[in-house]
Amino acid sequence: MKSGYYPRDLNMHPPAYTPGYRTSVLRSPQKAPIGFDGSPTEFTGPTFGHSLIGELDNNLILNFAQAGESAIGERIMVHGYVLDEEARPVRNTLVEFWQANAGGRYRHKKDTYLAPLDPNFGGCGRTMTDENGYFHFFTIRPGAYPWPNGKNDWRPAHIHFSVFGAAFAQRLITQMYFEGDPNIALCPIVKTIPDEDAIDRLIARLDMHNSRPHDMRAYRFDIVLRGKRSTVFENRKEGN
């Protein structure tokens, strides 16, 4: 099992302590993390079968809606590939997503924003990537919303993603933003990421090629997980 993963490039990630995002102040470890090469614990991870996924799990427009109804909002398809750092597909991996409704309100008891709940929108879904690492799901474009941080901070429209990968070393939670949203550049959570290009890679692109005429527009969003090291057998002449 000697393989392992490329070391994580922490310059691509937000540091723990980001005072512009105020909740991080008391929740950021202050001592340096301990680096080590990993062990079977990190080089393995849970896998889930396609049988886990229900018929409407990747359709947030319908998966909480009453029969014959659908969620309010701009209908979109979000699609893309889960790849590793060498652009290899991450196959058969679980992708989970959750979001606010079109008014910017989450179906969560802690969310008390003025915008109303949509009785036909739950806000969560999941899918598995296929043999090419491809995934897609249908949803409505979430609304921007204010949040308690600074006096007047607004989250850009975003969708949360959780991706497993083939091993816990690849596990990732992130957020997807929408091309052209002026709130992106103002957001203290976006700005926790120090690298401009890394922010840009979290912004989904309007994809008219895959939009469905008179139905829904598409947004393209690729997710990159850490690369896996080549497997080299020390005592046997076997290839990678």
Binding site: Y6, R8, D9, M12, H13, P14, Y21, S24, L83, D84, E85, E86, A87, H160, L172, I173, T174, Q175, I189, V190, T192, I193, D195, D197, A198, I199, R201, L202, I223, V224, L225, R226, G227
Partner: peptide, 10 residues
């Protein structure tokens, strides 16, 4: 490597 890992967000 060809690609960079996607940045984490809370």
């Amino acid at each position: 490597p060809k690609l960079k890992e996607s940045a984490s967000q809370t």
